[in-house]
């Protein structure tokens, strides 16, 4: 059985907000390591990999591995019934036909209990090879969200060019073109806002902005984001949390 108590329930609400528009149904794979999820979007262009490590919960107990098949829209609706400061406890027994959710307020005088029906999901699990990327950009997650949203005004796609001087996001469309360049600035006072680049080789890649904008729904989870790129392989957009991560992989657009 699974029992996982999350002191900051808001984290789970934010996680659901970050994935529910990309994926409809997914298995939460629970093991003694924690709760993991991997799923592709419906059009098989993007992949989401989520990990909530066991040490993010107190207590965390999972005697044997369980796959909890969840409709994410339904789960996020139920999670909207939890207060932002509530402690959230997830429970499922080994038959795993329902997921029990308990929300306790901080004064511990209001306890709400919900049960969500689970479903059998026959999902493909993809093996993600360890990759050494040609370029890794670490930057403010809010800045990344702003750039994606701004450039979406101009085009469906963005060209990302990384050199040792900086990273340039450019878009061209019917109404014109636009570009935002962030210079590498590791010495700025505000560490949270610094743009840092690790570069083996310059890269220039094209990606769909619609997906990137969707990924930025994870912005409330982390102040920093990393973009890992190599020629003609999927972009990795990673938001690190205190006890886990959310990683989005996006297949590039190739050719003219």
């Amino acid at each position: 059985m699974l029992e996982a108590r999350l002191q900051t329930g808001a984290l789970l609400k934010k996680v659901l907000e970050a994935i529910k528009e990309l994926i409809t149904d997914a298995n939460f794979d629970c093991s003694d390591n924690g709760i993991a999820l991997q799923a592709m979007d419906n059009s098989h262009v993007a992949l989401v990999a989520l990990l909530l490590r066991h040490d993010g919960f107190e207590p965390y107990r999972c005697d044997r591995s369980l796959a909890l098949g969840v409709n994410l829209v339904s789960l996020s609706k139920v999670l909207r019934c939890a207060g932002n400061d509530d402690i959230i406890t997830l429970k499922a027994d080994d038959t795993a036909d329902v997921l029990s959710l308990t929300f306790e307020n901080t004064d511990n005088d209001r306890i709400s209990e919900y049960e969500l029906k689970l479903m059998d999901i026959d999902s493909e699990h993809l093996g993600i090879p360890d990759t050494t990327y040609e370029a890794v950009v670490q930057m403010s997650s809010a800045e990344f969200a702003r750039i994606c949203k701004d450039l979406q005004v101009l085009s469906d796609s963005v060209q990302i060019d990384v050199t040792k001087e900086g990273v340039k996001f450019g878009a061209k469309g019917e109404l014109g073109s636009g570009a935002v360049t962030l210079k590498q600035n590791g010495n700025v006072d505000k560490e949270e806002e610094a743009t840092l680049i690790e570069l083996q080789q310059n890269v220039s890649l094209n990606f769909s902005l619609k997906y990137l904008v969707n990924f930025t729904k994870a912005t409330p989870l982390a102040s920093r984001v990393s973009l890992s790129m190599s020629s003609e392989v999927p972009l990795l957009v990673e938001y690190k949390m205190e006890a886990g991560y959310i990683r989005y992989y996006l297949a590039p657009k190739i050719g003219e």
Binding site: L126, I128, S157, E256
Partner: peptide, 14 residues
């Protein structure tokens, strides 16, 4: 325009 590639062409099914 550039063509969108499927993510499945990069990662194998396990």
């Amino acid at each position: 325009a550039a063509a969108q590639v499927s993510i499945k062409s990069f990662f194998h099914t396990v």
